[in-house]
Design a protein around this nucleic acid. Sequence first.
DNA 1: CAGGGAGGTTAGCGGTCGTTAACCTGAAGG
DNA 2: CCTTCAGGTTAACGACCGCTAACCTCCCTG
Lengths: 198, 198
Amino acid sequence: MATRTDAPTRREQILKEAARLFAERGFHGVGVDEIGAAVGISGPGLYRHFAGKDAMLAELLVGISGQLLTGAKRRLAEADGVPPEAVLDSLIEGHIDFALDDRPLITLHDRELDRLRDSDRKLVRQLQRQYVELWVEIVREVYPELTEPTARSAVHSVFGLLNSTPHLGRPGSLPGRGVTAQLLHRMARGAFGAAGVE
Amino acid sequence: MATRTDAPTRREQILKEAARLFAERGFHGVGVDEIGAAVGISGPGLYRHFAGKDAMLAELLVGISGQLLTGAKRRLAEADGVPPEAVLDSLIEGHIDFALDDRPLITLHDRELDRLRDSDRKLVRQLQRQYVELWVEIVREVYPELTEPTARSAVHSVFGLLNSTPHLGRPGSLPGRGVTAQLLHRMARGAFGAAGVE
DNA sequence: CAGGGAGGTTAGCGGTCGTTAACCTGAAGG
DNA sequence: CCTTCAGGTTAACGACCGCTAACCTCCCTG
């Protein structure tokens, strides 16, 4: 896989700053002038790169959902002959990496979905649903005692747990990335394990 | 305890509808005319009851944090001689009740805090901090192997888990309130239990 | 029965915001 | 050297939105 070493394009700069600002103050709370200023150009200059403010949010949210789903699919594909426990661990790890590395995106992900045009929102929801179903399948292999609806609820709840990283204080105050990742991982496993004891 | 049977005041109607609308479309995404329409009056009519749109959000958020903290304090006060496990269960139960009964408020709670005036935001954060500290204390009694920072992270994560109810589909699609509450409770306990195995 | 406050109404002001229009500039290509 | 075009700029428009002003109408009370 060719890791990119080239400088980020202007488009990518804009998306990154827009994500940060949207996460901080909400989609409606940020003006295009602000986004422009964050990358060193003025508001209307953004329209050389995006059709409008909505388009930025759409691209961000579709990108997030797609990235999560693609990553999960890749992990599943690589898991031939691997015990389901290890596959679940891999899914959890992937989600945690994303939550820790792209905190603004995780925040947007479940906060601004309703601001999208109908078609975009449907697409995002479809990607999210596929991602969830993928988890549900593996979770039920590891914890066969879980019914399907219970497993789905449990998956959503664990997402809530893993996505709580934005609330864990600013990056500096955390006890270290690796430690936090391991804590979240253990807790997710513990939560799944406890979901089915009835 | 005198349960109120009297009709809700106009003020309370407004707050309830405002909470729902803010949760659905975000603070900036809702106009005062809409809030007014939701209770059968026109936009500017709201100013007979509130100083402004900001004041509604402030009252909602302060109310939420206060209610959570007050409930938790009451539960602690009632727990004289009760084993810490039971106290923790009581805290979890209280939080779940709130999350399931007032889903719009839970959504607002960690989504629109930054839209508040400085003084209000400080107050809310202070109430939230007290609530967290209260949990941390009990959690460490039940799970003494947890260090203090770990326990605090764990508490935040469990809040993420418990507050995930808004993502569990519309009220009808849930497997029943009691069942959901029990599932969340078990998972929260499981998550705490797994937090400290190192 | 006067009057006054509580709780509405509509009209409209002022500011903000997304977007477009019109123009400029520097670098690449024939 | 002229053209083209990507990627900027500023000015300005139109819509929307929070809020105030001015007014109206019950209902309660002395």
